[in-house]
């Protein structure tokens, strides 16, 4: 099943997962090529977050295969996936709240460079410059010394993005990166992520509720419905897809202009 020309960063084949009697992910196929900016959309309960958790190793799946850069990653735990170049963010902001903003990023860098078993070197001075570069990229230089838990919500989302970038991933998975943000801020952070992706030649897969954001940045869109892929294509194709119009866009005409 491995992809023949090796240009796929992520390939998902027939993935299934159920919770009790609910089939949360029901035979999903997905192929994401290198450098893509892929949105995964769908109504609440379509299985987006479950799919994310399955791919990132947070949950075990019932059947199917996941290939990351041509290798099957069945059963690999998150730290191992992180090492291989898969990073992610969470729908509910997930940072180290009582560490300073700088320490957050330094810790991620230390781990990425496999230095986190070192017992006797002061970590304060390690990867400080690299961390500042990353913070600069997400616009948080001024916040570096503050405890990250007291940053405004939007800045915490940016910090989480920096944490994910610290491991120099090939694939970055963002689970509703704009959740809880004001509309203007949403476009800013997505433009930021898209810019970083282009610069670093990394592939991004993201889920998003805000259709404005999705259609503004995504180059391809996958629509999930009831745990299965309903449609896939360019924003234009998806917008014109009759099924999508019926089950999804039709209901939220307000946001899906």
């Amino acid at each position: 099943m491995a992809d023949p020309d090796g240009s796929l960063v992520l390939q998902v084949v027939g993935l299934r997962k159920h919770f009790g009697g609910v089939q949360a992910v029901n035979g999903v196929d997905l192929a994401v090529a290198e450098g893509e900016l892929r949105a995964i959309i769908g109504p609440n309960g379509a299985g987006k977050t479950t799919l994310f958790n399955l791919i990132s190793g947070d949950l075990a799946y019932d059947s199917g295969q996941i290939y990351f850069r041509g290798e099957e990653i069945n059963g690999l735990p998150p730290p191992e996936l992180c090492r291989r170049g898969l990073a992610r963010t969470f729908q509910i902001t997930s940072i180290f709240r009582r560490l300073s903003t700088l320490e957050n990023v330094q810790t991620a860098l230390l781990t990425h460079h496999r230095r986190h078993h070192n017992l006797f070197r002061p970590a304060r001075r390690l990867y400080r410059d690299e961390a500042m570069v990353l913070l600069d990229r997400v616009g948080l230089v001024d916040q570096a010394p503050k405890p990250s838990g007291i940053l405004p919500h939007g800045d915490q989302r940016r910090l989480e993005l920096a944490l994910a970038l610290a491991s120099e991933p090939q694939l970055l998975m963002l689970d509703e990166p704009t959740a809880g943000m004001a509309p203007r801020e949403r476009h800013e952070i997505m433009a930021l992520a898209a810019g970083i992706a282009t610069d670093a030649r990394l592939t991004i897969v993201f889920t998003e509720h805000d259709m404005d954001v999705v259609f503004a940045v995504a180059r391809r869109i996958t629509v999930l419905h009831q745990g299965a892929v309903l449609a896939e294509g360019t924003p234009l194709e998806v917008r014109g897809h009759p099924e999508v119009q019926r089950v999804y866009l039709g209901q939220r005409r307000g946001t899906a202009r």
Binding site: C82, R97, L99, T111, N118, L119, F120, P122
Partner: peptide, 28 residues
């Protein structure tokens, strides 16, 4: 020294958020 070392940083990261720690590559 241990508390201030990279080991100590990763340990505090686990205290704060074990799940996030896993996803930055720490074997919790």
């Amino acid at each position: 020294a241990i508390v201030d070392s990279p080991f100590g940083y990763a340990l505090r990261a686990i205290r704060e958020n074990p799940r996030r720690a896993r996803f930055i590559g720490v074997n919790v």
